[in-house]
Computed example of a mutant assay.
Amino acid sequence: MSEQATFGAGCFWGVEAAFAQLPGVISTAVGYMGGTTERPTYEDVCTDTTGHAEVVQIEFDPEQISYTALVEKFWSLHDPTTVNRQGPDFGSQYRSAIFYHSGEQREQAEASRAAADASGRWPRPIVTEVTPAGTFWRAEEYHQQYLAKRGMGSCHL
């Protein structure tokens, strides 16, 4: 039986590509979560008024990859110490966020955040929010597997 995980780590294109390569990940989709606007479009989210984050929703096989392993990958994909910013992208839609789907995911995410914060890996405190998953609003089709469709491995500068 598969499970879901949802992460916000800045621009969703590169984050999706990184998670899609992991053994045990069944599928990925990019979209929006955490805000108040129903059925937001990319243009809506870019206004920074919807409250939504750009997210990657992952369907995974917990017998092949653990939720904890996904969270560990999440830490490696972005700077969790910047508020509403990743690289050149800024706005609340680019915030660092873990949207949990169960109490067990919440506990694992919070424990991982505490361990990552205490690790000394980053020079500033981690600002990643750990919050309940809400409605996942799938992004427009042209955003799905964006980098793969263009033969690109990543979009990082």
Rank of each mutant, 00 (worst) to 15 (best):
T6F: 06
F7D: 08
G8H: 07
A9E: 05
G10I: 01
G14I: 03
G14E: 07
V15R: 01
A17F: 02
A18M: 09
F19C: 06
A20L: 11
Q21F: 00
S27A: 15
T28H: 03
Y32A: 03
M33I: 06
G35A: 02
T36H: 14
T36F: 00
E38T: 13
E38K: 12
R39Q: 12
P40T: 08
P40W: 03
D44N: 15
V45L: 09
T47M: 01
T49H: 13
G51I: 11
H52R: 10
H52E: 10
H52C: 02
H52F: 11
A53P: 09
E54A: 04
V55Y: 02
V55F: 01
V56A: 11
V56C: 08
Q57L: 07
I58Q: 06
E59V: 15
Q64I: 00
I65W: 06
Y67I: 10
Y67A: 09
A69N: 08
A69L: 02
E72P: 11
E72M: 04
K73A: 10
F74Y: 15
W75G: 12
S76G: 12
D79H: 06
P80T: 08
P80W: 01
T82D: 00
G87M: 03
P88G: 03
D89A: 07
D89V: 05
S92P: 06
Q93S: 13
R95Q: 09
A97L: 09
F99K: 12
Y100M: 13
H101D: 10
S102F: 14
G103N: 14
G103C: 09
R106E: 15
E107I: 12
E107M: 09
E110R: 15
S112L: 11
S112C: 07
A115T: 13
A116I: 02
D117P: 01
A118P: 07
G120P: 03
R121G: 15
P125N: 07
P125D: 12
V127H: 11
E129W: 01
T131M: 14
T131E: 14
A133N: 13
W137S: 09
W137G: 03
W137N: 08
A139H: 08
A139D: 02
E140L: 04
E141N: 12
Q144F: 02
A148F: 08
R150G: 05
S154M: 00
H156G: 00
H156D: 15
